[in-house]
Write a protein that binds this DNA or RNA. Structure first.
Length: 895
RNA sequence: UGGAGUGUAGCUCAGCGGGAGAGCAUCCCCUUCACACGGGGAGGGUCGUAGGUUCAAUCCCUAUCACUCCAACCA
């Protein structure tokens, strides 16, 4: 084993070895219970970021743990074609070469995107490997693989036949830059500074003109009504009459609709059904004509008459100027309002009426809501046993989910892009539509052979919405499908709860006889920079995960992410923290190295080290260490019993944390145990145990315990820090029942033993530890040189603790670095001071406790156990004062 | 506008009804033969603010302030 811990020296080698040994492989069929996670497929738009690192870590921890716990564990990897995002990236690349997709043509363009996909997909896979991710790479899939594409068509055609997918002309969000329709989710409301314009609409009956406020004066070109609230006294007589649309020489009616807010603006609203979602609804209620005045490039069309050809912004300027001239612009105010912008390019999205494909999701949403409601009333364990309920964690997300699902609108699924699944609909020259799973060359209605496939592609989330089952071979009921559907855990970011998770639930239940696609959803938080800001290239605060791995190792990075992946809390990534966990890895490395030296299996650096080479076979009679330990534990030395008890406690905490997605608790427990108990105390105590003749009978037993506890710790830590634990494990000496060269990642995860006396064992050693602490504090406070080996005397005052203490004397002496623990004390003054101080605080404690116990309300109302506890405490404190008094007396005499 | 979350030591975070914890940072001592990515010691917090419930509140309730996020149809 190398002296220095250097992750780069083994990470790559071990990963390759795991791959060769097929350690990540999951069986399609197995007698073992199944556990599966469908990996959220990263977009093939480029490199991995910290958000990916977080999900890879969390999912890998869960999968490694389950795999070691005897499950046939499948983590199914893949990548997503990410329609708009990828097309945009490639278009940008092409622009550098002076190329445009329109000029290239569809086929040539797609060829380039595929090339990009190969490159980017490989890169992402490589990066996940660097992190130590253990998905079953043999099953790696891409959303546009032939099989998945076939499933997409199957779903499209089925939903079409069920009447849930239809083509219609409706108002949708349109990005004039990306030149495509967007779903509601792809439009992000953004605060923008704008103006509030008050315009005059003159009445045809010569009455006082109506004043109407708007932020978008250019849309007046498409106004087809003015609306007021039916109860608005100011406009009572006006409903049914007409007003003159400024500049357009058109008359439009005044209508009454309760959507209008009487308090807002002038209480009169211009209605533009062609370019506003609400106006569209109002228009439908009142049978208003829908007038589109922008074209798809965002230019005014022929309906805009004299403004035709102007862009939206140009038209606004011109119209305002013309209104001003016509004295129809009453006033202008500054106004901060939110506008919808394209999620991808941030250009303002234009609501526009257009013919698109839609999915009616309402019926599916109802079932999807019911499944989560059911999950809410069940525990995590109960939900695992069924296939009709979903538990969302952290639970606070459930209400957000309901709200969205209850108000869900039809999903616009067509996109005017080239990269994606082309819609399986064909139109013939007579205008008939044929929807089919197979390519169509003849119209199903009129047999015309002049057919053309719809140019558009499906929203990217259409195919990823099928991910948990299409990746298992669906619609065929494959062995893998039967084994792994429903999957157990969906672990992803809350930012795609609606985009993805909700749609998987709806489509999953719809196409799998009501069976949910996953039983538990764990939504992790965002990875931010150390100040809590979102990492973005423009802010320049992006930390590249590969840089972190290079500087600290994948394990330190993973451990950091695990400890910070507490529920519902953003991960603020700080390099200091990562460095701290690298130190932990280093500690683990060196502790292991020491243990191996002490077992005589690695050349000791101590000249003349008296410790014999550990012969486990002889000590345990050929039994595996774990078995031998549990059979003989009751007779072990208190120190060995104690560390085994601490180990049991740790295993329990680690397992509970993993079960409840509290990875931070689990990783913290591992850290505290390995460093705070095993290294800081047990190893130090063991030096005395192994090094002194007095305990020579305990050497074999202690060597077994050192080994056994180290091995269990490695297993416990493995899911979090797979590389270093595996590397150390491969250096462990031969043990009975243990085949050398088998990977740790396939070893079985520790179980807490059922041994009863653990608490008592812990108590004993706690007495020793606190004695050492006291002596060390005394040295520190009194500036006694670390080199000094003072002689210290002790006196047993409390016989109960006394026996425990006496057994620990040699160990306390060793750890406190004393010459003797029995003789005369060196510095009486200092000790007097310390004991005096201790007495004072103890007296204060007594006062506090007495006050509590003499309070009548406390005696009456507090639970009996607590009162007893307080009484016991008081007694103990009083005894302690008596002891301290005794000690003071003695010290004074010595002086 | 509505909903959710967060506010604890200088920093990053645990704890969440019975007298406040960790890591890092700071200060002091130590190159003791696994580890200076180390060992030992010390200092440091009226647990955002104000009320309330309770024998008892950092923890529960109410209000309030600050930050963050989510959902939104106010032109």
């Amino acid at each position: 084993m190398q002296k220095a811990f250097s992750p780069e020296s083994f990470e790559t080698r071990l990963y390759a070895w795991w791959m060769e040994s097929k350690c990540f492989h999951a069986e399609d069929q197995s007698p073992k219970p199944a556990f599966s996670i469908a990996m959220p497929p990263p977009n093939v738009t480029g490199a991995l970021h910290n958000g990916h690192a977080l999900f890879v870590t969390i999912q890998d921890v869960l999968v490694r743990w389950k795999r070691m716990s005897g499950y046939n564990a499948l983590w199914l990897p893949g990548t997503d074609h990410a329609g708009i995002a990828t097309q945009m990236v490639v278009e940008r690349e092409l622009a550098k070469e002076g190329l445009k997709r329109q000029a290239m043509g569809r086929d040539a363009f797609l060829k380039r995107v595929w090339e990009w996909k190969e490159k980017s997909g490989d890169m992402i896979v490589e990066q996940m490997k660097k992190l130590g991710g253990s998905p079953d790479w043999d099953r790696l899939q891409f959303t546009m693989d032939p099989h998945l594409s076939k499933a997409v068509r199957h779903v499209f055609v089925t939903l079409f036949e069920q009447g849930l997918i239809y083509r219609g002309t409706r108002i949708i969000n349109w990005c004039t830059r990306c030149q495509t329709a967007l779903s509601d989710l792809e439009v992000k409301p953004t605060e923008r500074k704008g103006h509030f314009y008050h315009l005059k609409y003159e009445r045809t009956d010569g009455g006082a003109p109506l004043v109407i406020a708007t932020t978008r004066p250019e849309t007046l070109l498409g106004d087809t009504a003015v609306a007021v609230h039916p109860d608005d006294e100011r406009y009572k007589g006006l409903v049914g009459k007409k007003v003159k649309l400024p500049l357009m020489n058109r008359e439009i009616p005044v209508i009454a609709d309760s959507y209008v807010d009487k308090e807002f603006g002038s209480g009169a609203l211009k209605v533009t059904p062609g370019h506003d979602f609400n106006d569209y609804d109002i228009g439908k209620r009142h049978n208003l004509p829908v007038m589109g005045v922008f074209d798809k490039a965002g230019k005014i069309n022929a309906e805009g008459k004299q403004y035709q050809g102007l862009s939206v912004t140009e038209a606004r300027e011109k119209i305002l100027a013309d209104l001003e001239t016509a004295e129809l612009l009453v006033r202008t105010e500054d106004h901060l309002h939110s506008v919808g912008v394209c999620d991808r390019c941030e250009r303002v999205a234009e609501p526009m009426v257009s013919e698109q494909w839609f999915m009616n999701v309402k019926p599916m949403a109802e079932k999807a809501i019911a499944a989560v409601r059911k999950g809410e009333s069940l525990t995590l364990a109960e939900v695992e046993k069924r296939d009709d309920a979903i538990k969302i964690m952290p639970e606070s997300w459930a209400s957000t989910y309901y709200h969205w699902m209850e108000n869900i609108r039809d999903w616009c699924i067509s996109r005017q892009l080239w990269w994606g699944h082309q819609i399986p609909a064909w139109y013939c020259d007579k205008g008939h539509t044929t929807v089919s799973k197979e390519n169509v060359s003849r119209c199903a209605t009129c047999d015309s052979t002049s057919v053309r496939q719809d140019d558009d592609v499906l929203d990217t989330w259409f195919s990823s919405g099928l991910w948990p089952f299409t990746t298992l071979g669906w619609p065929e009921k494959t062995k893998a499908y039967n084994t792994f559907y429903p999957t157990n855990v969906m672990e992803t970011g809350f930012d795609i709860l609606f985009f993805w998770v909700a749609r998987m639930i709806m489509l999953g239940m719809h196409f799998n006889e009501g069976k949910v696609p996953f039983k538990r959803v764990y939504l992790h938080a965002m990875v931010r920079d150390e100040k809590g800001q979102k990492m973005s290239k423009t802010k320049g605060n992006v930390i590249d995960p590969l840089d972190i791995i290079r500087d600290y190792g994948a394990d330190a990075f993973r451990f950091t992410l695990s400890t910070m992946a507490g529920q519902g809390r953003d991960v603020k990534l700080s390099l200091d923290r990562i460095e701290g966990y690298k130190a932990f890895c280093n500690k683990m490395w060196n502790a292991s190295r020491y243990v191996l030296m002490r077992l005589g299996h690695v050349a000791s650096e101590l000249p003349g080290d008296p410790i014999p080479k550990a012969d486990f076979k002889k000590v345990t009679g050929g039994k595996p260490l774990a078995d031998w330990v549990s059979e003989n534990r009751a007779d072990f030395h208190p120190l060995n019993k104690w560390i085994l008890a601490e180990l049991d406690k740790t295993i329990t905490v680690v397992e509970r944390g993993l079960e409840e997605f509290r990875l931070n608790e689990s990783s913290q427990a591992v850290y505290d145990f390995v460093w705070g108990q095993y290294c800081d105390w047990y190893i130090e105590f063991s030096k005395e145990l192994l090094g002194s003749v007095e305990h020579s009978a305990r050497v074999g037993e202690t060597q077994v315990c050192l080994m056994h506890v180290l091995e269990q710790s490695l297993k416990l830590a493995h899911p979090f820090i797979p590389f270093i634990t595996e590397e150390i494990y491969q250096h462990l000496p031969e043990r009975p029942g243990q085949k050398q060269g088998t990977p740790l990642m396939l070893a079985s995860f520790p179980n807490a033993s059922r041994y009863e006396g653990g608490e008592r064992d812990i108590e004993t050693v706690t007495v020793w530890k606190s004695a050492v602490d006291t002596l060390r504090a005394f040295r520190g406070e009194n500036n006694i040189s670390p080199k000094a080996r003072p002689k210290v005397s002790y006196e047993v005052l409390n016989p109960k603790v006394g026996d425990q203490f006496i057994a620990g004397v040699p160990f306390i002496r060793a750890l406190a670095q004393l010459e003797t623990l029995a003789g005369e004390t060196g510095d009486v003054d200092g000790e007097l001071k310390r004991v005096e101080k201790d007495k004072q605080t103890t007296l204060a404690d007594i006062e506090f406790t007495k006050a509590k116990l003499t309070k009548p309300t406390f005696i009456e109302k507090a639970p009996k156990e607590l009162i007893d506890k307080e009484k016991d405490k008081l007694k103990a404190l009083e005894t302690k004062v008596a002891e301290l008094d005794h000690a003071l007396e003695r010290l004074k005499k010595l002086k």
